[in-house]
Computed example of a mutant assay.
Amino acid sequence: MSDNDASTTGAPTRREYVKYGSAIVGGGLIAGCTGGSGTTPEQADTSTPEDQRYSVTMSPVGTVEFDEVPERIFTRLSHHAGMAFALGRGDDVNAVNGPAYYDATWKQFTERLPGVSVDWSDAYASWEPSKEQLYELESDVHLADPAWVVQLDQWNTDDIMEVDENISPWFGNSLSDRRQEPTSEWDSDYEYYSLWEQFEKVAQVFKEEARYDALASIHADIIETIEAGLPSESERPSVAMITAADVEKQIWAYTVDNPGFLTAHTRPLRPRNPFGNSFESGSTIDFEALLEADPDVILFLSGMQPNVSMNNLRSTLISHTVASEITAVNEGRVFPQGARYQGPVLNLFQLEMSAKQFYPEEFGEWPTSDGGPYPEIPVDEQLFDRKEVADIINGEF
């Protein structure tokens, strides 16, 4: 279906089975949509009975009413893809930001989940999605934040509404990542959610509340274990997260204690920030600036990728005249990390790995490795049961 087909004909659309009830965004940007614009009285007579419909509410989309559980799932960022995966719907994801990268990332962790697999390698690369491609995909729900999508050059609010009316609804919240400000159309009603608060709402969309409850219980247990084992503030390390294609040429640095779900795996461990209060997470720095911050621990984002050698990275840092003076490098505390847009299952793993990387005396040491899948941790040092998580994903709980 082309854009012209959708906007000029009266034919039924994919959007008929789902409708917005009372979405109030930016003073009514998406409000009270009632389904495909071509719906006729005859079609309305055969619609889903009122008692079978259900609705879910989340900012910025408001209240979305569904006639049936969505099947084909569009996602733009991997935290939403990770939510579908956690609910046993990973194979239904047809789009994700950086398919090859995140497919490889997830596989590093699913290696430790018996009977669980994922394959997003052929999914549509949706960092800058085209409206035409969304028509081609014909997804039943778009797990993406329209308040972020509208900021892309090729999108405007009319496009957002067209997709909602002609294909399927938007249901996502991404500006909660680091509590970014939305544009003026959305700012009056925009709310921020934690990773797990948003996951609960996504679970309601797929009527998978039981899976959510089971995973949320495991998450709560991990947080309780971490809080019980945290040392006093004076004994907590300063931690910096970095990433680089070539660490000697350009480094991006991130804080790990700021609000937002990007730090859902580090903030609960209450590390100290080695950078000043004026430092903007995601800034580029060099070795001199990293030495000035002098973190006790360095986390290397993308370090879990199968083509990344942590040994090579450590050797590069140790052999550099400036980097070798950094405390984390000197003390051998340069560790891999997987993803910031992580989803709930990766969050469980990354809470465990961060706890071991920050506080080995309390939670057991993180195995030093040169990459590869998530290492095998002795059962008595695991913060959660792998098979229990796998059974929840597979619906066998």
Rank of each mutant, 00 (worst) to 15 (best):
K131E: 14
M161R: 14
A44F: 14
Y54L: 03
T284W: 15
Q198G: 08
P367A: 00
Q350R: 08
Y254Q: 11
R211E: 00
N277D: 14
Q154A: 15
Y101Q: 11
W120D: 06
S47N: 06
A289T: 07
E165D: 11
V297C: 04
N258K: 08
R112T: 15
V116Q: 09
D140L: 13
S168D: 09
T255E: 01
N394Q: 13
G282A: 07
S278I: 00
K356W: 15
W106E: 06
D159G: 12
V379G: 01
D391K: 01
T183N: 08
I392Q: 06
E162Q: 14
G282L: 04
R314N: 11
P182S: 05
Y135E: 07
S2F: 01
N258D: 08
A328P: 15
A100P: 12
P49N: 07
P41G: 06
P268M: 01
E288C: 01
T316W: 02
T46Y: 04
E352F: 11
E352R: 00
T255S: 03
D189G: 14
P378L: 02
N330H: 13
N173H: 10
D45I: 13
T63F: 05
T48N: 01
T321Y: 00
F279V: 12
E197Q: 14
S232Q: 07
E233L: 09
P344A: 02
T255Q: 07
T13A: 14
D370L: 07
A44D: 00
V202C: 04
D380Q: 10
T105Q: 09
D213A: 15
Y190H: 09
T316F: 00
T57D: 12
S188T: 15
V141Y: 11
T13V: 06
D246Y: 06
S47W: 14
V25C: 11
Y124E: 08
V163M: 15
D391L: 04
G88S: 11
A228R: 02
R76S: 01
T263G: 13
S117A: 13
R53E: 13
V322H: 09
D189S: 13
S7K: 05
I242C: 00
P169F: 08
S7N: 11
D370Q: 06
Q350K: 10
Y101K: 05
F358E: 04
D103F: 06
G371T: 10
G21V: 01
T321K: 08
L137A: 04
E376V: 08
A323Q: 11
G27I: 06
N166I: 12
F109A: 15
G32R: 08
N4C: 07
L317V: 03
D213G: 11
S324R: 15
S126E: 00
L262R: 07
S174L: 09
G10T: 05
V69S: 07
G26Q: 08
A355H: 05
E381H: 02
E185V: 08
G10L: 12
G62D: 10
D294K: 06
Y17P: 06
I392H: 03
